[in-house]
Amino acid sequence: MNSQLLDALTVLEKEKGISKDVIIDAIEAALISAYKRNFNQAQNVRVDINRETGTMQVFARKEVVEEVTDPRLEISIHDAMNINPQYEIGDVVEIEVTPKEFGRIAAQTAKQVVTQRVREAERGVIYSEFIDREEDIMTGIVQRTDPKYIYVSLGKIEALLPQSEQMPNEKYEPHDRIKVFITKVEKTTKGPQIFVSRTHPGLLKRLFELEVPEIYDGTVEIKSVAREAGDRSKISVHSDNPEVDPVGSCVGPKGQRVQAIVNELNGEKIDIVRWSKNPVEFVANALSPSKVLDVIVDEEEKATTVIVPDYQLSLAIGKRGQNARLAAKLTGWKIDIKSESEARELNIYPREEHDSLFQFDNTDDEHGEEQDE
Score class of each variant (00 low, 15 high):
N278G: 01
N266A: 10
L9T: 05
M167F: 02
I270H: 04
V22Y: 09
E165K: 10
K16H: 13
A30D: 05
L293F: 13
H78L: 14
G318T: 04
V225N: 07
R46Q: 09
S288Y: 07
L346E: 15
G230L: 04
K254R: 14
G103W: 00
F358Q: 15
G248A: 09
V295K: 06
A260E: 04
G248V: 09
R227S: 08
E135W: 02
G140Y: 04
Y149L: 13
L161V: 11
I95K: 10
D48Y: 06
F39Y: 14
E281P: 03
D7R: 14
R320F: 05
R51E: 15
V47Y: 00
K190S: 13
I18P: 08
E120N: 09
E66D: 05
E52T: 08
I24G: 01
A110V: 00
F195R: 05
T109D: 11
L326W: 01
R144P: 01
E122V: 04
E268V: 06
L287A: 02
R344D: 08
S233I: 06
G332L: 11
D176E: 08
D70M: 10
V142W: 08
E170Y: 01
Q359F: 14
G54Y: 02
I194W: 07
N266R: 07
T304S: 11
I337T: 06
R123V: 04
V68Q: 11
T145R: 14
K334A: 05
V247E: 10
M81H: 01
A343C: 07
F130C: 07
A60M: 10
Q41H: 06
I335L: 03
G332I: 03
A159R: 03
E88K: 15
P279G: 06
R51D: 13
E15W: 00
P85G: 14
I317D: 12
D7K: 14
V280Y: 05
F360N: 12
E101T: 00
I75R: 02
S224D: 13
K187W: 11
V244C: 14
L161Y: 07
A260K: 03
I178Q: 10
D21A: 12
F59S: 11
E211H: 03
K302H: 14
I261L: 06
